[in-house]
Design a binder for these strands. Structure first.
Length: 262
DNA sequence: GTGCCATGTGAAA
DNA sequence: TTCACCTGGCACC
């Protein structure tokens, strides 16, 4: 689940269901020190990249779902399923957080520290890729590594990385500094479009009709799959018919079309 | 039913 | 570089 769009949804859902409510927090699993939280009224929720911030006055619960983390929402307080790190109960709702990489209480300074580690988030309207312009212009990192780096752009994960690179016809091995300003504008705008659509629908479908088609695709091509290249290794490229390839790249599986992405 | 892989990250070695 | 986190989905038996 968790790329940037899921966290944005989680923040919105938390606010819609728990906003301004007095919450009862607990840790059925025992690994989250609830007592350290002095305030119990949820005063705000924020998402930055894949990080979720739940504000309780001046204290903030900082959550990163990692690979397995998830919230389970229900109207009744049932017996916790599995290892529940944090349970939050409002008059209307109960949610159980399981499997997060991070669930900690921070003060304002602590939140700032986390946020300074993060690059611009395409889902923040005021953000811009130029915040990292110097790095992008100098770096020899392969573009496929840069797009996954949360300190450079926050919120893109393995699925969006593969799809964005394919849709722009860019090789994952292209040195970052070789990417032009026009190409960064396109990458950034596409990231915004895809993450926004993911936030709206709750799913990653990059081939949907209401989205701009991949630049490499012949006009009018119908797409039967949810993605152009992600998890499609061995299948034919929707643009050129060439077999989609995959390989381990900086310890994550990278998918690409060897013909369309140069 | 079993086993492997996964949209992620940071601590330990 | 490897492991821990600790869960769900799915291919395969």
């Amino acid at each position: 689940m968790p790329e940037g769009h899921s966290i944005r949804r989680a923040a919105d859902q938390w606010w819609a269901r728990m906003g301004n409510a007095e919450l009862e927090l607990s840790s059925p699993q025992g690994k989250f020190d609830v007592a350290a939280l002095t305030d119990s009224v949820l005063t705000g929720t924020r998402a930055h990249g894949k990080h979720l911030f739940l504000d309780f006055g001046t204290n903030t619960v900082h959550i990163h779902l990692g690979l397995y983390g998830r919230f389970r929402w229900s109207k009744e307080q049932s017996t916790p399923v599995g290892q529940v790190r944090m349970r939050a109960v409002s008059p209307q709702w109960t949610t159980d957080l399981s499997g997060p990489t991070t669930c900690e209480i921070l003060d304002e300074e602590g939140v700032r520290k986390v946020q300074t580690r993060l690059g611009p988030d395409p889902l923040h309207p005021e953000s811009n890729w130029r915040e990292q312009e110097d790095f992008f212009k100098k770096s020899a990192w392969p573009l496929g590594k840069t797009l996954m780096e949360q300190s450079k752009i926050a919120g893109i994960g393995n699925v969006y990385r593969a799809e964005i690179l394919f849709m722009e016809g860019l090789s994952p091995w292209l040195p970052t500094r070789a990417v032009t300003e026009q190409q960064w504008d396109r990458i950034w705008n596409l990231s915004r479009t895809l993450l926004s659509e993911g936030t709206r629908t709750g799913r990653i479908v990059t081939t949907a009709k209401n989205l701009p088609p991949a630049a490499t695709l012949p006009p009018g091509t119908a797409c039967a799959t949810r993605s152009y290249v992600y998890k499609r290794s061995g299948e034919p490229c929707l643009a050129c018919g060439q077999e989609i390839r995959s390989e381990l790249f900086h310890s994550r599986t990278l998918y690409w079309c060897p013909t369309c992405q140069v």
